[in-house]
Every structure is written in structure tokens, then in C-alpha cells.
């Protein structure tokens, strides 16, 4: 349902060359899906942006003093407070704009969009309180969750965003317990329960869909939330060349459906809408799981039940979303 802004493939390279927002040469791992998300946020800008970044992978790989990959104003304060810091920036900007404080200073602009950027740990878990508060207070900002499904920066520990069965260093595959026995927290449901004007999911493989949604998030008056799917080859034990393939498979298997929620109304987008209309195009989740080392144990004959269970969880979630979607 993303209408209005259509990314122009001819103008984007020029725009990104003139004003990249983030530079190459940062220290993200090869095949990092989250680094692609950062570029896509930049491609969707309608005006300058200011980023409040939670502690995590994207904070660490883009900055190490005296270097920075950012060519956009950027601040990192702590792990659990990206939304609160963004709230402060929003409030400061509003007051300074209203007062015309720096209007006479040609070196200063207070006209920008505010972005909070956090991983799954900083959103599902430690940052949930600050996020909920900022949504309730209706700050004018876009919160981007880059979800690589575990605490990757500290060395692959499970989070509330880690899917069922996944191996992590705190959900090891043991004789008794194999991987994470629980499933992913429905973070978008939680966010949407705040009845914010805009929420959406994006996968970097579907970049036009992603750019439209990021732009919509920027244009939203009030809080917007984007749940971005971020492949982590290091933590998922996947081949770096498979990042985009996995970003597609996650959507094609309906493990990570693409949709937007506009004023609490759900709409499927892109390939997820196609699958809703042509259910036979839905791929079995095993195709997605088998490419990842973190699910390797599930491929053993004695653990086949885990794949089945995973498929059930995916189907359950997909059915819920289908029921909600207004455009199916």
C-alpha cells in the first residue's frame, strides 16, 4: 500500500554519491544484512536525518574513535535508550524550530527527520520500555529495528528476537535442550498495540518495497516503526553470498512476511501479497532453515520434529497476519 514516493533507480546512485549519509569502509562483517539496511534508510531520505543509535553491531562497526563512517549527525548514548535519546532530539528540535533559535546562523540547520536505530536486543529486550514510552508520547520519529535475531555484537547470545530452535551461545545444542526452546516475541504486534500511525516490515532483498516504507516512516506525523530483517552470516553460520538469497527466502517461506500497518489496519505488500493471493507459491520453511548453520541440528533425522514445529509456528503467524490483512 506504499503509494506516493517511488524510488528512482536512475537518480539514486547520483543522490547517494553526492550525499551518502554513511560511507563505505566501515567494519561490518562480509555479507552483513544490517549494513544494507543502513544504506536503504539513507536512500529513502526526504531531508537530512539525525540518528540516535543504540549500543550494538551498527554502533560498533561504524565508529571507532577517531574514525566514523557517518556523514549524517549521529549519536550513541547507551544500549536501552535509543528511543529516549531520539525523543530528546525530537523535543529539542521542536523547541529550537519554534523559537527560530539558530535561524540566523548559516552553519546550523534544525530541519531534519529523527531516526532511532537499534538491534533486536536493544528493542525486544532491554530497550522495550524506552520504546513503549516514546511511542505513547507520540514523538515524531522513525524507529528502525534491525533484527539479526541474537546479541551478535557480544558473540551470539539469544534474545527475545531469536527464533525457535536456533543455536546461540546461550541456547547451545545440548543432549537435553537443543537450541532455543521458545519462539520470537511478536514485536510488531506489541508496537502496533500502541496504535501508532505507521509500522512496517522490510527485507533488504526487496529494496523498492523497503525504500517506500522507510520514506513513509519519514513522512509519518508521529511515531513510525520499521522492523527490518538483517541476515547475520557470522551469527547464523551462513555463507556470506547467501545474504540476499536468505532475505528473499525469509519472505517466500512466510517466516518474515512483508506488510505495513497504517493506523492499525494491516496490508500485505510485495511478494507477501502475491503469496496471499497464490498460496501455492509459499515455500516450505525447511528451504530457509537448511542454509543456516544455526539450524543444522534440526536437519538430523531425530530432530525432524523441530522443523515441523518451526513450520507450525510460521503457519500460525502467517494465518494471523492473513486474517488481519485488509487487502487479501
Amino acid at each position: 500500500m506504499a503509494k506516493g514516493f517511488v524510488p528512482n533507480i536512475k537518480q539514486l546512485p547520483k543522490f547517494m554519491k553526492e550525499d551518502p549519509g554513511i560511507l563505505q569502509g566501515h567494519r561490518a562483517c562480509a555479507g552483513c544484512g544490517c549494513a544494507i539496511i543502513l544504506r536503504q534508510i539513507m536512500m529513502a531520505r526526504r531531508k537530512p536525518i539525525v540518528i540516535a543509535n543504540a549500543t550494538g553491531c551498527m554502533e560498533v562497526v561504524t565508529t571507532i574513535f577517531p574514525y566514523t563512517a557517518w556523514r549524517t549527525p549521529w549519536i550513541h548514548v547507551a544500549f536501552e535508550n535509543a528511543a529516549a535519546v531520539a525523543a530528546g532530539i525530537d523535543a529539542g528540535r521542536n523547541k529550537l524550530q519554534r523559537a527560530g533559535r539558530f535561524s540566523g546562523d548559516k552553519d546550523i540547520s534544525v530541519d531534519y527527520d529523527v531516526v532511532a536505530l537499534a538491534g533486536d536486543g536493544g528493542t525486544y529486550d532491554i530497550g522495550l520500555q524506552a520504546l513503549s514510552g516514546a511511542l505513547e508520547r507520540w514523538h515524531n520519529f522513525m524507529y528502525v529495528l534491525y533484527d539479526n535475531e541474537a546479541y551478535m555484537n557480544t558473540g551470539i547470545q539469544r534474545s527475545g528476537g531469536t527464533p525457535f530452535g536456533a543455536w546461540t551461545t546461550t541456547t547451545p545444542v545440548g543432549k537435553k535442550i537443543k537450541g532455543k526452546p521458545l519462539t520470537k516475541k511478536p514485536i510488531v504486534d506489541i508496537v502496533v498495540a500502541h496504535r501508532i500511525p505507521y509500522a512496517a516490515t522490510v527485507s533488504p532483498a526487496y529494496w523498492v518495497d523497503a525504500l517506500k516504507k522507510f520514506r513513509k516512516g519519514f513522512e509519518t506525523e508521529g511515531p513510525a516503526f520499521i522492523h527490518a530483517y538483517g541476515v547475520c552470516p557470522r551469527g547464523w553460520r551462513t555463507d556470506t553470498k547467501d545474504t540476499i538469497k536468505l532475505s528473499k527466502l525469509a519472505v517466500e517461506t512466510c517466516f518474515f512476511p512483508l506488510y505495513e500497518v497504517i493506523n492499525s489496519e494491516w496490508y500485505l505488500t510485495g511478494p507477501s501479497l502475491t503469496i496471499a493471493k497464490n498460496p501455492d507459491r509459499k515455500k516450505p520453511v525447511e528451504e530457509y532453515l537448511k542454509l543456516q548453520g544455526r539450524f543444522r541440528h534440526m536437519m538430523l533425522p531425530e530432530n525432524k520434529w523441530m522443523v515441523e514445529k518451526f513450520q507450525e509456528l510460521v503457519d500460525e503467524n502467517w494465518e494471523i497476519i492473513l486474517k488481519r490483512a485488509k487487502n487479501v
Partner: peptide, 14 residues
């Protein structure tokens, strides 16, 4: 925690 975090954001914004 958010009270002071927001102050930091606001102060950084000028």
C-alpha cells in the same frame, strides 16, 4: 533512565 537519556539527546541537539 529515559529522563536523563532524553536530556542528553536534547542537549546534543543544541
Amino acid at each position: 533512565h529515559s529522563a536523563l537519556s532524553a536530556c542528553v539527546g536534547a542537549a546534543a541537539a543544541g
